[in-house]
Simulated scan of single mutants.
Amino acid sequence: MLDSSAWVALALSLKVAGWATAINLVLGVAAGWVLARHRFPGRDLVDALLTLPMVLPPTVLGYYLLVVIGRRGWLGGWLHETFGIQLIFTWQGAVIAASIVAFPLVMKAARAAFEGVDRRFEQAGRVLGLGEWAVFFRVSLPLAWRGILAGVLLAFARALGEFGATLMVAGSIPGRTQTLSVAVYEAVQAGQDDVANLLVAITSITCIAVLLAAGRLLPARATS
Rank of each mutant, 00 (worst) to 15 (best):
T177P: 06
A36E: 05
E132H: 13
T177S: 08
L105P: 00
R221V: 11
P58E: 13
Q178T: 10
L35C: 05
L198Q: 09
I148H: 01
R138H: 15
A190H: 12
E132R: 15
S99C: 13
I69M: 02
A165P: 01
W33R: 04
A97Y: 08
D193E: 15
T51C: 06
P104L: 08
Y185H: 12
A124Q: 15
P142G: 08
T21Y: 04
G129P: 03
A155T: 06
T203H: 02
V195H: 04
G28S: 09
F121L: 15
L65G: 02
V117E: 07
A144M: 12
V8K: 11
G215E: 11
D118V: 11
R72Y: 10
I173G: 07
E132P: 01
Q189P: 08
G76H: 03
M168I: 12
G129M: 05
G93I: 00
Q92L: 15
A187Y: 01
G171R: 03
L45G: 04
R71K: 13
G191H: 11
V101F: 07
N24E: 09
G77R: 04
A134S: 14
A109I: 09
P53V: 03
R119F: 00
F136S: 01
G161I: 09
V46Q: 08
A150V: 13
R72M: 10
R221G: 02
P219L: 09
L50S: 05
F121K: 07
A157M: 04
F121W: 15
V106D: 02
P41Y: 08
F121P: 01
